[in-house]
Design a protein around this nucleic acid. Structure first.
Lengths: 206, 206
DNA sequence: GTCTATAACCGGATAGAC
DNA sequence: GTCTATCCGGTTATAGAC
């Protein structure tokens, strides 16, 4: 029964995804994944020969969509202004729906840098387009003369960090209040856009 | 021989620190720590009954100094300007010397949030002082009306992210060049200070 | 305090019935 | 495809000699 297969496979992936994200590759247990999927260990190995292969599959399925979302913004931005706005809004929206992905990916980046960098490279980001857009507007005296690499890192940092540091922000800055943290996240993309634009635009309104 | 004891204990902690930082709690092996310390496994257990206890000790000794460095800036800042400058310069300097600490701590924060939040709380940061400083300067129309929580998160994000994302920044943005990455880090604190000040100060020079 | 040897356990992987 | 039972390697932890 093909249908049954797909259901089980999807159930496994979904369970594995939750467990790997919670515990990381090393901390995750096949038994825990099996329990969470409502099946037994042997079946995991029937579908995905080994823990490594299962992890690879889960990682790719978590990472690729995130990469594609960002790539779209890179490819479609027309000027610095729309790039910042598009990048921040799309990225924060993506992370709000998958709040644990950033830590999962960052952890894997440090565990296995080459694989992750390879996957990024193979998706052919056009960094030059952004750099040229920035250069044009710097020449036109519309924005300060910032290094585009620093700007990219700033943008990603401002978006990603609130999610990887969620336990501290909620636990310490908001004394454990989930509602306060949620409101903070809801304000976040508006805040970042304003913050970054204020930083780079000469003669920024307000 | 008390002296010998201290030496061995320190050798173990130093070795454990390196291994735990490289591999994380789950990925680390007592054998690897023993090898790196130049002793055998049994001695690890003689000094620190279990892997868990050894990890706790290593974590505390990595985390506390970082926390204290930051606390000093909080306690001594006189105005927003000196706070930003002090925070960024001290934090980046600290991280440059311990580039793997951020990922180590972030991972532990997600693995065991309560413990880490507890340690932060017990070090009695005076968040209110900073919030008041900001409020004063907002009222005096010197800076934009930003939420101090967002500003704090921004500062930490801009400082920490370049270190946790080192493999991507170096591997992708700098095509693997260690020298380029190092130069990027060297520019970083100057860049952040300028970036943040440009964002918040009304009538910022340059 | 430090070692070697080994116990005790755990977890990934496989065999084989259904 | 799915299950139960089991194997086997690796890892933490301990026993006991020196």
């Amino acid at each position: 029964m093909v249908n049954k297969t797909e259901n089980t496979e999807e159930k496994i992936i979904a369970a594995a995804r939750r467990v790997f994200i919670r515990k990381g590759m090393d901390g995750a247990r096949m038994q825990e994944i099996a329990n969470e999927a409502g099946i037994n260990k042997a079946l995991l190995h029937y579908y995905f020969r080994s823990k490594d292969k299962l992890f690879d599959r889960v990682f790719a399925e978590s990472f690729m969509p995130a990469l594609q979302t960002i790539k779209l913004v890179f490819d479609e931005a027309k000027d610095v202004d729309s790039f910042i706005e598009g990048f921040v809004r799309n990225y924060i929206a993506l992370l709000s729906e998958n709040p644990y992905i950033p830590h999962f990916i960052l952890h894997e980046i440090n565990r296995n840098p080459l694989r992750v960098v390879g996957q990024i490279k193979s998706s052919h980001f056009d960094r030059e387009r952004i750099a040229k857009m920035v250069a044009t507007e710097v020449n036109g005296k519309r924005i300060r003369a910032f290094d585009p690499v620093h700007m990219m890192v700033n943008l990603v940092a401002l978006c990603v960090f609130p999610f990887v540091a969620q336990p501290i922000i909620q636990g310490f800055l908001f004394d454990g209040s989930e509602a306060d943290y949620q409101q903070f996240i809801d304000e976040r993309s508006r805040h970042i856009v304003l913050f970054v634009k204020s930083a780079i635009y000469l003669n920024h309104p307000q």
